[in-house]
Amino acid sequence: MRTTRRTTALVAGAAAALLTLTACGGDADPLAQDAGDDGEEMSSDTIVVGSQAYYSNEIIAEIYAQALEADGFTVERNYSIGQRDAYMPALEAGEVQVFPEYTGNLLQYYDPETTATTADDVYAELSDALPDTLAVLDQSPATDQDSYNVTAEFAESNGLTTIGDLADLDGLTLGGPAELEERPYGPEGLADVYGADVAFEATGDTTVQDLVAGTVDVANVFSADPRIQTEDLVTLEDPEGLFLASNVVPLVSSDVADQVADVINPVSAALTPEGLVDLNVQSTEEQRSSEDIAADWLSENGIG
């Protein structure tokens, strides 16, 4: 009988664990992470620059940091703070004061129901949606947003240039992260906006490899992904604005916005979409540190 008793204990244990797990339910976000702040106050002439745990974002943050330093600010770097849920509380509390962000994704964080998709609409709505403690400086022409891509070969043999051209093809499979299926620009959006019917296949971290290997025909890749260049992919144009425009934008604390605007706005203006891809290539292909990449970029563009 020993085994049966053990099983009963196991079932009871599992049930107890579940109850504990659900007890913290309610409205709270059970996955929310502590931003890791220690409530430490910064002196007013020190600017804290933060970044996401994303190499491309860190390069932009490093460019901001070096530009600020060149202008005489004391900069403290707080990189790789994780994803939006983790760092936004720290920004709203003023513990991090300058942060490279992306207009569309940030707007979606504050207003998940937004219908704006073009760059200017998104920027305008974002400025309104931000809490009083935060402000955005000028947006950059550089974007890092979702895009649909096919291999150059596939584009050529089927005469594809825009997403709408997909509507003429049958039996296509769309690959991307699992959540793409539920996004407004996912399979449903493709059918509604462009009349293209596609099957969906979750490809996780290997989306680009899957596209190249041919297990999927169309893939959701970030527009600044260096592999669009290195793997010879073609990004399909999006004339109907299926995707939310997501330009690089500096998110700053309102109380330092005026101080840093003169330094950072020229940086944003000089950062082009191609320039951003180039920065990413230097990181992923040439394995250079974000510090070196940022220093070179600033001197090439005559800033700082």
Binding site: T22, G25, A178, E179, R183, E201, A202, G204, D205, T206
Partner: peptide, 25 residues
């Protein structure tokens, strides 16, 4: 679920990103 459309992990991987906690649980 992290590498393809298989298994119950798919819902968890998807649910985390779209913050659908009912689906994850």
């Amino acid at each position: 679920g992290y590498v393809g459309s298989w298994g119950l992990g798919f819902y968890i991987v998807q649910g985390i990103q779209i913050r659908d906690f009912a689906q994850i649980l």
